[in-house]
């Protein structure tokens, strides 16, 4: 391992151990050191957002200069990004800019995200129809039947109201017994996996900060 990698690994492992120790051993010195390190991490993350936005800008400027497909959308993105950034900088010092900043979110960002959410409903319906053709297995069949039963039990039928047996017995059993117990099992597995991943980073076996 190069000296730079060794140094970054040592710093990362030491910081990780201090934060972990501060969580379990409630000594003032450890808790304060742990809180300070977490605050530094949050500050660095905030600065990373600025770098990330510059990266986004560079990627889209590159798309325009290389005349790649979708370059026109990149022009719109850059224009919107710079305009929103300028309004955001002006807003605290120039009160008329503040409503424009709110407008950018309410009139552009929110409707676009809501449209994508609506598109997602169609996408999922279509994907569920195609699922048996793409991956025909026992689990796929169970997945589709469960989805249909929950839908039928949740949405009342026109003129008939709730579906007998499905709305009052089957759907609650699926949602509150089968799905809830399965979900808890998956979440326990995810928590154990997260613990193992954290320990790998603490041991320096995984080094996302570089230095193989």
């Amino acid at each position: 391992m190069k000296l730079k990698g060794l140094f970054s690994t040592a710093v990362a492992v030491l910081c990780g151990l201090v934060v972990l120790a501060g969580y379990f051993v409630r000594l003032d010195i450890l808790v304060n050191a742990s809180n300070t390190l977490i605050t530094w991490a949050i500050l660095l993350t905030a600065f990373a957002i600025l770098l990330g936005i510059i990266n986004l800008l560079i990627v889209h400027v590159g798309k325009i200069t290389r005349k790649q497909k979708g370059g026109f959308y990149s022009i719109i993105l850059i224009f919107a990004m710079l305009a929103t950034f300028a309004i955001g900088l002006l807003a605290p010092h120039f009160p008329p800019a503040s409503p424009a900043f709110d407008f950018a979110f309410r009139a552009v960002q929110l409707p676009v995200e809501a449209s994508l959410m609506a598109l997602l409903a169609v996408t999922l319906t279509y994907a569920s129809i195609r699922l048996p053709r793409r991956r025909l297995s026992v689990f796929s069949v169970i997945f589709i039947i469960t989805g249909l039963l929950v839908l039928l039990g949740t949405a009342p039928l026109p003129f008939l109201g709730d579906t007998p047996l499905v709305s009052d017995t089957l759907r609650p059993t699926i949602a509150q017994v089968l799905a809830a117990s399965g979900a808890r099992g998956i979440l326990i597995g995810v928590a154990l996996g997260a613990l193992a991943t954290g320990l790998r980073v603490l041991f320096g076996a995984d080094r996302p900060y570089g230095g193989k």
Binding site: A127, L131, R134, I186, G189, V190, G193, T197, L199, R200
Partner: peptide, 30 residues
């Protein structure tokens, strides 16, 4: 599960390193 060709469920996400031969630590963590 409904849309991707292959899906990893639950902790299989954290097993990816071990299956991709990332080293003894990944295997032992599994």
């Amino acid at each position: 599960y409904a849309t991707a060709q292959e899906t990893l469920i639950g902790e299989e996400l954290f097993a990816a390193g071990a299956y991709a031969d990332s080293g003894p630590f990944h295997a032992s963590s599994l």
